[in-house]
């Protein structure tokens, strides 16, 4: 994590919080709760145990569907790179999946799977994040520097070593970037799916807070969602990105 990025951001954050607090002072807390009210709601959610259980449910669904999306996206990208016929046949299908608005998928998922515990959110996360993995990785493969492969072949390098020592390290930055973008999609879709078609998880808690006009809880849950995403993006993935591209010129 680069602290230099965070320092100016802290300032922006403080200004945003001040604006929020100032705006809330003149409004009903049903419309805009104050910072204090939102933090109190957060505290209540935390001590009641709902925070932990809902968070774990959403996280579990996200990770299952995300893993499936990663495996499928990687396999499809490799197959389409290797077999041009396969690419011509299926590439437009991925674009169609990607172009379909998530709300259509969730409507269909509710019809197909009902307000199921896991299936509806898992389906939506998969269908939204798989194309993201595929598109980013496929682009990386297509942009691969074939001159290096040619050099290795000229020096009689065995195929397996070419895959391990040229293809893999060359693709790693594209893969990590794909993982990072897709995780943001997955996390958001997860909450969206639970909001509409589930009876558990953070999305469901958001939907409950919404129907009960508990705006402070709505803000509390949103804070949790954002904090987790920032942790993943700037802590876990940023470290991974730095590691896989340490040989790159910054």
């Amino acid at each position: 994590m680069k602290n230099s990025i965070f320092k100016p951001f802290y300032l922006v954050l403080i200004i945003l919080i001040l604006i929020w607090e100032q705006a809330a002072a003149g409004l009903n807390s049903l419309i805009l709760p104050s910072v204090g009210e939102s933090l109190r709601a957060l505290h209540q959610i935390a001590v009641s145990g709902v925070l932990y259980s809902s968070f774990m449910i959403t996280l579990r669904r996200t990770l299952i569907a995300y893993s499936l999306a990663v495996i499928t996206g990687v396999v499809l990208a490799l197959l389409m790179h290797r077999f041009k016929y396969f690419k011509r046949s299926f590439r437009p299908l991925i674009t169609m999946i990607q172009a379909t608005p998530p709300v259509v998928w969730i409507a269909l998922a509710v019809i197909w799977f009902g307000v199921a515990e896991d299936l509806t959110p898992i389906f939506l996360i998969f269908i939204v994040s798989m194309p993201v993995i595929f598109v980013n990785l496929f682009q990386g493969i297509e942009d691969l520097n074939t001159e290096l492969v040619e050099m290795a072949e000229a020096y009689s390098t065995p195929r397996l070593r070419i895959i391990k020592e040229i293809y893999f390290p060359a693709l790693l930055p594209a893969l990590v970037s794909a993982l990072s973008i897709a995780f943001a999609f997955a996390w958001k879709s997860s909450v969206f799916a639970e909001f509409i078609g589930s009876s558990s998880g953070i999305g469901y808690q958001l939907s409950r807070a919404n129907s009960m006009l508990a705006t402070d809880s709505l803000f509390a849950w949103t804070i949790i969602l954002l904090l987790f995403m920032i942790f993943v993006e700037y802590y876990l993935l940023e470290k991974l990105k730095a590691r896989v591209s340490r040989w790159k010129n910054d």
Binding site: P169, W247, K248
Partner: peptide, 28 residues
């Protein structure tokens, strides 16, 4: 046994200078 020097250097960017030599040496 043939070896090649390309017009533009074709070096593996994720390997150090020495690892680049070892990369081809391993084949022999």
């Amino acid at each position: 046994r043939l070896a090649y020097v390309f017009q533009e250097p074709r070096l593996l960017p994720w390997k150090t200078a020495e690892e680049n030599l070892i990369f081809v040496q391993k084949n022999y």
